[in-house]
């Protein structure tokens, strides 16, 4: 079926912890995080705001905000090379070329004083030795590819002259300019209205199949997950609590948190899943409970949950759960 080359994941995150400074001490916002993204695969990272999904993507890009944040430990292997250990100059060569990122806020993510055409062609100019005319021609082709109406006429326009949906298309054009092996999409559709959202998702799916790109897709919208993901990783308080193929997680979620997330019927037009059913809030970064981090909110909680931290246990091939009650260590489901 496949050769050895195709088996190496595009992205392999191993035991990653990303820390932030709060009142003089470093606290992990993400800890013990491990996952792979295979070639031409879309992995969705799902969870409430503040669970560490965006931080994860930023650390892959080497864009963890400094000096208040840092990668504490672990490896981020992108095409076999450890991004976390790279110098800034090496990272700059990778960013925008082999890996690219789309951000959540199309309204503020484009530079207001540079023309849209230039911003799209910039990555080409930076990474490829081509002249300005060739870069512009390619940028125009990209704008047409992401279906900007009358792209030629609008090439020299500025971001404020575009709508939110159009700006997000421009962001996508920028990100795919150099056909990256990995695209990190941080809630790319959250700020858009429903129809535009569906269009943008469709566009991303087309691009992925056309270019054989891998995607790390961050969202808290489960409708979007169903539409685009191959596999799903559910994050809570900086840890993966459940990871499984998309069909499996929709049909049989194991972790109580995943269950709660999925209790509300996922719909693409819902901005946020209601978590009222579980009550409570994600604990702040500097006041994490010692045992299972979800324990204080968990309906299936047992006294042992709060004593020790839980391990991620494989309950089925490709399906792992971090829960001492539903998936105790040593147990193995068929």
């Amino acid at each position: 079926m496949s050769g050895a080359v195709d088996d190496t994941p595009v992205l392999r995150v191993e035991d990653l912890s990303v820390e932030f400074r709060v009142r003089g001490a470093w606290w992990p916002a993400v800890r013990g995080l491990s996952f792979d993204v295979a070639r031409n695969e879309t992995l969705a990272l799902v969870g409430e705001s503040g669970c560490g999904k965006s931080i994860t993507a930023l650390s892959v890009m080497g864009l963890v905000p400094r000096p208040q944040g840092r990668v504490g430990s672990g490896r981020i292997l992108f095409e076999g090379r450890d991004v976390a250990a790279m110098r800034e100059a090496e990272l700059e060569r990778l960013r925008g070329d082999r890996m690219a990122m789309i951000f959540q806020e199309p309204m503020t993510s484009l530079n207001p004083v540079l023309s849209v055409g230039f911003q799209v062609s910039e990555a080409l100019r930076v990474h490829r030795a081509i002249d300005a005319a060739a870069a512009d021609a390619e940028a125009l082709r990209l704008l047409e590819e992401v279906k900007i109406p009358s792209a030629r006429r609008r090439f020299a326009d500025y971001p404020h002259q575009f709508s939110g949906g159009m700006r997000q298309r421009v962001m996508i054009a920028m990100a795919i300019a150099l056909k990256p092996a990995l695209l990190l999409a941080d809630e790319p559709t959250t700020a858009l209205d429903v129809t535009i959202q569906a269009q943008v998702l469709g566009l991303l799916a087309d691009l992925k199949s056309a270019q054989g790109m891998s995607m790390l897709f961050i969202t808290h919208n489960l409708g979007v997950v169903a539409a685009i993901a191959d596999r799903v990783a559910v994050m809570y308080a900086g840890e993966i609590v459940e990871i499984a193929p998309v069909a499996r997680i929709f049909s049989g979620p194991v972790h109580p948190y995943t269950e709660a997330l999925f209790r509300a019927i996922p719909r693409i037009d819902r901005e946020e899943q209601s978590l009222d059913a579980i009550g409570g809030q994600v604990p702040p970064i500097d006041r994490m409970p010692p045992g299972c981090r979800f324990a204080p909110r968990c309906p299936a909680r047992r006294p042992s949950c709060e004593a020790s931290s839980q391990a991620l246990v494989e309950v089925a091939p490709g399906h792992s759960v971090r829960c001492g009650v539903r998936a105790p260590a040593g147990a193995r489901a068929a």
Binding site: M61, L63, E88, A89, L91, E92, R93, L94, R95, G96, D97, A100, M101, F103, E105, T108, S109, L110, N111, P112, E122, A123, V126, H127, M171, M174, A175
Partner: peptide, 15 residues
């Protein structure tokens, strides 16, 4: 601290 500066860095534009 603006988003578009992060975007530029994400494109691999040199510091």
């Amino acid at each position: 601290s603006e988003d578009y500066v992060r975007t530029a860095r994400a494109k691999g534009v040199p510091a």
